[in-house]
Design a binder for these strands. Sequence first.
DNA 1: AAAATACATACCGTCGCGCGGTATGGGATG
DNA 2: CATCCCATACCGCGCGACGGTATGTATTTT
Lengths: 217, 217
Amino acid sequence: MARNKHPEETVQRILDVAFRLFMEKGYEHTSIQDMIDHLDGLSKGAIYHHFKSKEDILVAVTDKMTEESNQMLAVIRDRTDLTGKEKLKTIFKESLCRSVQDEIFTVAPDFSNSPRLLFSIFRETVDEAAPDYILPILKEGIADGSIRTEYPAELAELILLAANIWMNPMVFDNSPEESYRKFRVFAQMMQGFGLDVVDDEMLGRLQELASVYQKNK
Amino acid sequence: MARNKHPEETVQRILDVAFRLFMEKGYEHTSIQDMIDHLDGLSKGAIYHHFKSKEDILVAVTDKMTEESNQMLAVIRDRTDLTGKEKLKTIFKESLCRSVQDEIFTVAPDFSNSPRLLFSIFRETVDEAAPDYILPILKEGIADGSIRTEYPAELAELILLAANIWMNPMVFDNSPEESYRKFRVFAQMMQGFGLDVVDDEMLGRLQELASVYQKNK
DNA sequence: AAAATACATACCGTCGCGCGGTATGGGATG
DNA sequence: CATCCCATACCGCGCGACGGTATGTATTTT
C-alpha cells in the first residue's frame, strides 16, 4: 500500500479494527495477523511503525474507550453550580443515559474472553478515573457539607469499581433483572455512605438500558 | 527420568512450581519451558500428559489456592450454633487470622503482572465462593432475622468482591495505612447494609497483617 | 537535494502443543 | 512364583503460529 499523507487515519483504522477484534475474540485470542487480515493490505511493519507493541495497542484502545466517558466526568467535576453530592447524582444519571445509545453495545463484546482487556479497564478505573474525577468531587462534597466520609480516596475507588466493573453488563453478562437488582444494591450501598444519589427515574432508565442490551445479544 | 510409582506426586510438583512461577513472573510471562527448567529433568511431554493445556494448569493452581479458604467457609457455613450475621463476622475474623500466616505472603506475589491469574480468582469469587458460601449464610440470616436484604445473591457478590479483590493486598499493593483505610470503608459499607461485623479487635489484627506483608516485599 | 516518514518484506527466536516412541508399573494368568 | 500384558508415566522432536525486528523502498516534508 502506498504511503498515506495522513498517517493518523491509518492509526485510527488500526485502532478501530483492534477494538472490534478485541471485543469479539478477546485480546489474547486476537493476533497481529488477524488485524492485518482486516486492514486491507496494511502490513505488519506498518502496525509496528505506529505502535511499539501489541500491548501498546491495547492501551490505546482502552484509552479511546474511556476518553469519552472521562470527558463527561471532567465537565461535571468542574461545574460550579452543584454541590458535591449533586455532581455524583448527575454522573450516575448521565452514565445511564449514555450507555443506552453507546456504540459499545453494538459489537456484542465479551469481556469474559479477555482478561487483559478487563484488567486494563480495571486499572484505568483505579489509577485514573477514581482519583482524577470522583475523589475531587468527594472532597468538594466534604468541604461543602453535602458528603461525609473519613476516607474519600478509598471510597472513590470502591464506588467506581462497583459501578464500572461489577455493574458493567459487559463484564458480567447480566440479565435485565440481575442488572436491576445490582443497581438496587448499589443504591443501598451509596445510601449507607450517606449518598442518596439514586431516584426512581434512574431505576426506570436502567430497566430500559438492560432490555436494549439484551436485544443486541 | 524413570517412571514414578506415584504420579500424583509429579502432578503436585508441577503445581508447586507453576504456582511459584505464576506468582513471581505472572502467568503470561511463565512458559512451559520455565516450568521444565525448575522440574529437574521432567519433560514437556510429561507435563502435557498430566495437564491438557497451560490454562488447565492455571485452573488447577487457582483451585488449590482457594480450596483451603473455601473449606473454612464451608465449615462456618454449616455450623448450627450461630446466626447468619454471626457467621459473617466469624468469616471475616478467620480470614484476617489466616492471612497473617498464609504461605501466599512468602512468595512476594504480584497480581498486577498477571491479569489471567487475577481474572481466575475474580471468576472463582463470583461463580463459586459467593453463591456457594456467602449466599446461603445471607439467606439463613434473612430467615433467622439477623440480616435484612432484598437481594441476597447480589449482596453476596458485592461483599466478596470487595473483600477478595479490592482489599486484597496482592491485587492492590497497598501500604498498611491504605489497607487499614480500605477496611474501615468496607466496615462502613457493611454497616450500611445492617451488617456490623467488624470490631476493634479485627482492626488491630489488620494492622498486624499489613505490616507483615510489607516486611516480605 | 537531504532528511524524515510511512509503509512493505523477509526474517528471527520462542511459544504452546501434538505425536510417535519407550520404559515401567501392577493385575491377571498359569 | 514366574510370565505376560497392557495401561500409563514419561521422553523429545518438530510443527505452525505468534510477537517482534531489521532492512529496504517509496513518498512527503524541509
